[in-house]
Amino acid sequence: MKIRASLAVLVFAGLSGSAIAQDPNLARNLAATCANCHGTNGHAVAEAKKLAGEPAESIIQTMAEFRSGDKPATIMHQIVKGYTEEQIELIANYFAAQE
C-alpha cells in the first residue's frame, strides 16, 4: 500500500508537471487547509482527530470511504469531495511524515 501511494504521488507529479509546474511545497500547503479542525501539521488538540503520524494508506482509505459514503460522517463526506484523489494522497503522505 505504501509503495502504491508513493507511486501515485510520483505519477501525479509527472502528470501535473506536463500541464503546470507543481509547487515544491504543494503537499504542505494542501495539508494546511486541514489544520483549522485537525491542528497545525495534524497535531490536533481537544477531541479532534489527530492526523500527524497516521499511516498515509489509512488516511487515503478513510477519505475514499467518506467519498463513497461507505463511512458515515457529519461533514467529512462533503469536504473530501472538494479535493481530487491526487490532492488527498499528497495530504495523506504529508501528515504521515509528521512526527
Binding site: C37, H38, A44, E47
Partner: peptide
C-alpha cells in the same frame, strides 16, 4: 455530535 465538533474547531483554530 457537531456541538462537540464546534468547540473542537474553536480550540484547534485558536491553536493554529
Amino acid at each position: 455530535l457537531e456541538g462537540g465538533y464546534a468547540l473542537d474547531w474553536a480550540q484547534n483554530i485558536w491553536a493554529d
